[in-house]
Simulated assay, not measured.
Amino acid sequence: MWKTRKFWLIVGICFVALSLFAATGLAYQLNHWWNEAHISTDPDKAILSDKQRDKIMTQKLNRNEPEKNEETRYDFYALIIGLDLRDDSFMLNTDTIIVAHVMPKRQRVKLLSLPRDLRVTDLEDRSVKINSVFADGYMQAREKSRLNPDLLSGKTVKLGQFHIYEELLSSGMVVLRETVEEYLDISIDHTFLVHFQTVTELVDAVGGIEIDVKRTMVWDDGADGTSIYFEPGVQHVNGEQALHYARFRMDSRGERYHSNDFERNERQQEVISRIVDKVVSWNSLPKVLDMIDIVAKNVKTDMGQNDMIQLARNFYSGWSSGSVESIPFPGYWNYPFVYIDEEDLEQVKQALKSLE
């Protein structure tokens, strides 16, 4: 059975849409978007264990932060987390995780996709798959809040059709963010949580996209009605087809035809670039407003409103699909984890941090 794979925040689309949106000067709509999309990820408000809090503090004290200068003062790192919320299913594993190095003055974004089975050390000093970290943080917060309801403020966050206590989501986001920070030796400024349905709606909103299929893909799942079939070649796809293309993993023809996470990551980022191509070719405010509505429904972020406006100003007029750069992750599979050699990991870190 083709297991459900979580999806990703289309960071390029958020930046493009916000840039075009803020440039119109429509402050009311931007304020409304922010109010709907905002979520707190303050570690002091998250529901964490004492060991987790101590480790977060130790990591921050030991991390050497590079000094900001005029050239890098607006640069930041963002963590992009995907959840699968379909029908009545609330899936917690985050099988797609992207780290973005955003350089507004250079109008560039570097994207690094981390494999879902990547072996990491969590805040409890356990070796785990990275896609389980958010779920562990969420479930721990839920259990603690059941024993002590006073840990919850009562505020809920709407994600898809679900209304979820803010502290539960933010606790999962915090423990994953801190784990990724330690793994890549960076400080993440902003975190984004996305409902994978964003992909379908955004692709349909831009009128479909062109993708370059590299191989035949075949999958039929009688349990949930999923049917995927692609032949190699350039083709125009709608939102559902684009989602299937990016999520494809298992092949009905057998194991030798399965697709690995590294190939999936490449297809995901191809879809990002194709949507960006469409958006930057527009000169239509109504279309941009539709994009904002889609993002607001399906995306939650701790980015402040002023940061959004500044980001929009810095990116406006210079964004293109060429602004997005993908960083390869040369990992390898050795059951049950994905590993990466230490030397290769250092090169990945440097490529992500580099201003070039």
Rank of each mutant, 00 (worst) to 15 (best):
317 S>K: 08
94 T>W: 10
177 R>Q: 07
232 P>A: 03
149 P>G: 03
276 V>K: 02
226 T>K: 04
125 D>H: 15
153 S>K: 05
34 W>F: 11
318 G>N: 03
295 V>L: 15
355 L>K: 04
190 H>I: 09
319 W>H: 06
179 T>P: 01
125 D>W: 15
190 H>Q: 02
162 F>P: 03
230 F>L: 07
25 G>T: 08
74 Y>Q: 12
165 Y>W: 14
61 L>E: 14
16 V>A: 11
69 N>R: 04
101 H>E: 09
333 W>R: 02
80 I>F: 13
147 L>S: 10
75 D>R: 03
253 R>V: 06
313 R>K: 12
229 Y>P: 05
77 Y>V: 03
80 I>E: 13
304 G>P: 04
35 N>C: 07
79 L>R: 02
319 W>P: 02
198 T>C: 04
239 G>P: 11
111 L>W: 02
306 N>G: 06
239 G>M: 08
198 T>K: 00
333 W>S: 09
321 S>R: 02
235 Q>H: 02
163 H>M: 12
44 D>V: 12
252 S>L: 05
71 E>V: 13
321 S>F: 11
322 G>W: 13
155 K>G: 01
262 F>A: 08
64 N>S: 13
83 L>G: 00
77 Y>D: 02
159 L>N: 01
220 D>M: 13
319 W>F: 15
336 P>F: 11
